[in-house]
Design a protein around this nucleic acid. Sequence first.
DNA 1: ACCTGAACACCGTTCAAGT
DNA 2: ACCTGAACACCGTTCAAGT
Lengths: 222, 222
Amino acid sequence: MATRTQQTERRGDALSKPRIVEAAIEILDSGGEAALTFRALAARLATGSGAIYWHVADKQALLAAAADHIIAGAVIKAASGLSPREAIRTIALGAFDAIDAHPWVGAQLSGDPWQYAVLRILEAIGGQVQALGVPEAAQFNTATALMNCILGLAAQYAAAARLPANSDRLALLAAVAARWAQLDPKEHPFVLQMAKLLADHDDRDQFLAGVDLVLAGIEATT
Amino acid sequence: MATRTQQTERRGDALSKPRIVEAAIEILDSGGEAALTFRALAARLATGSGAIYWHVADKQALLAAAADHIIAGAVIKAASGLSPREAIRTIALGAFDAIDAHPWVGAQLSGDPWQYAVLRILEAIGGQVQALGVPEAAQFNTATALMNCILGLAAQYAAAARLPANSDRLALLAAVAARWAQLDPKEHPFVLQMAKLLADHDDRDQFLAGVDLVLAGIEATT
DNA sequence: ACCTGAACACCGTTCAAGT
DNA sequence: ACCTGAACACCGTTCAAGT
């Protein structure tokens, strides 16, 4: 909490945690999770791989910091004029867009639900859950139920992001649908029926439908 | 689909995919995700590490098969006498118990939401969603919203399972609560309020509350 | 205080060679 | 057809040595 002394920057290109996180995000955005190694990061920063450990505890902390940087910019602070219901949808869509633009964030969120980036979303949602008039005893369960919509989405995008770089999301969905279509109709009637819809389904619609379903549940229960 | 010839088993101790998966589950249950390496697995099966690749494509396929084996036993087929609502709760609790008993299953489910184990749950839930009278156009979104409750739970347990083996779940929750309690009250009023409840909260209650919230939303919407 | 980069202790996976 | 196990191509992380 003490204010930093003025020696903080001595050269413009000195190593620092923000610069490391920034470089990590560039690597993650362009090459995905697999591309982020300490060797690649050190090369991009023109330093030794060990130098990074002076500023960042380990790879997990680096990924958490990178995800938090993205989420912090995406989750707008309590959008002023909106109703609680609309505010929750806005927060959720902010998370959606962030994960859509940076699929590796999905892997990071679903991989560690206690990290700061998740807490940040939970805080934003929780405030609106309170504003919605949910009784105190139910607020935690309600807010985490909404978080689950985001974590489920995150897991979906993370799976897509782990594919080889050349195949895109459409190819994944087509492949999944094709695999589903080969299932035994006796064993999997429901999934087979859904396979037809999967190829041209909209992630954003699916996501918002889930959020709206939980919102409807909240209103029905409260 | 062709019936196997009788040469399938020649010796009781011959290597086979079921035996490999069984050994993998034993390692995962006793030592967690980090303990499962091809070297450790080969040692337990008294064979070379390369032999495993004759029966299993790669580590991801091995983990998927292990998770599916657990989930197949946990998701009871359309529990007969129950109402759709009670059937969904039963399926969800079956998944809960499986993840609770085998936390590495949580990591596997949330790590790949298109794998067979997830599809198996989705099929079971989907059938009941249809029985519930949800219109066809909404069935997929509704079933995946319920799946998200399970995936969110899975992510929570996966995070706990990745901790060093000596620390238990209570220690994790206490640590998280302590970390949350140090947050700036101005920035995180909601999370700070929840931190008090976190230490002695019940995962099963939280999980079921989420499922019930979605169920309430379904009933309100349909 | 901060950086360097070789070294350590691992991985998953492959593959020539065996039976 | 199935198994062996050394070898390959990587990792994250550490640490003595520099500045």
